[in-house]
Simulated scan of single mutants.
Amino acid sequence: MTDRLPHEKGFHISWDQIHRDARALAWRLDGKGPDAGGWRAVVAITRGGMAPAMIVARELDIRTVDTISVKSYHSGGGAADQRREAEVLKHPDAEIMGDGTGILIVDDLVDTGKTLELVREMYPKAHFAAVYAKPAGKPMVDSFITEVSQDTWIFFPWDMALQYVQPFRGTD
């Protein structure tokens, strides 16, 4: 058995797949809002939640869309990628948000749940949805579509470029 780096246990998501999964999330959320089944607004957790939130908003005909920007990683690639204390860089419109009632907060992935924990403290009555969920973060999300193992690295289409990859078992 070959030892793998953590990022080599990858789950590659195409644009088509994220679109299908975000639509499935919208179908799951349809009619579940507190306002006769409707939602007042969608808030994307940036940056990863923007594409799924846009698709959910379109599918559910929600015209009010906002963002909350939360930074919880230092990105540098490889060992430089480290978690840090989650920090809100940009808040959504306070008049829209209130305590979160009728607000659908969407992210691409709930990993450890630290980002959603911070946002949930701010908007306790919002509904939290993610397209993908890892076991450690699942308790922080109300709805999700696909669960992956905690040690799986998800490669989203906005993070990738097409390039040649060496075969897993050598080059002969």
Rank of each mutant, 00 (worst) to 15 (best):
M1F: 13
M1G: 13
M1Y: 09
L5G: 08
L5H: 12
P6T: 02
H7D: 11
H7Q: 14
K9S: 11
K9A: 06
G10V: 13
G10D: 15
F11L: 09
H12Q: 09
S14Q: 07
W15D: 03
D16H: 09
H19K: 14
H19D: 06
R20E: 10
D21M: 06
R23C: 13
W27M: 14
D30C: 14
K32S: 08
P34Q: 12
P34G: 12
D35R: 07
G37Y: 00
G37R: 01
G38P: 01
A41M: 04
A41Q: 00
V42C: 11
A44E: 03
I45A: 05
T46R: 15
G48L: 02
G48M: 02
M50C: 12
A51Q: 09
P52S: 07
A53K: 05
M54N: 13
I55V: 15
R58H: 14
E59N: 06
E59T: 11
D61T: 14
I62Y: 04
T64C: 11
T64W: 12
T67C: 15
S69R: 14
S69I: 12
V70N: 00
V70W: 00
K71G: 09
Y73P: 00
Y73W: 08
S75F: 12
G76T: 06
G78M: 05
G78T: 03
A79H: 03
A80D: 02
R83C: 00
A94N: 05
M97E: 00
G98F: 02
D99E: 12
G100Q: 04
T101F: 05
G102S: 03
I103L: 05
L104A: 07
V106R: 04
D107K: 04
L109C: 11
D111E: 08
G113S: 08
G113V: 01
L116H: 06
L118W: 04
L118E: 05
L118S: 03
R120G: 07
Y123W: 12
Y123T: 10
K125F: 04
K125N: 13
A126Y: 04
H127Y: 13
A129F: 10
A129E: 09
A129D: 10
A130Y: 03
V131L: 10
Y132W: 13
Y132T: 03
A133F: 04
K134D: 00
K134Q: 05
K134F: 11
P135E: 08
P135G: 09
A136S: 15
G137H: 08
P139S: 05
V141P: 02
D142W: 01
D142M: 10
T146W: 14
S149E: 15
Q150C: 08
I154H: 00
I154T: 02
I154G: 01
F155G: 08
F156I: 01
P157Q: 04
P157R: 02
M160Y: 04
L162T: 13
Y164W: 15
Q166H: 13
P167L: 10
F168I: 15
R169I: 14
T171M: 13
D172W: 12
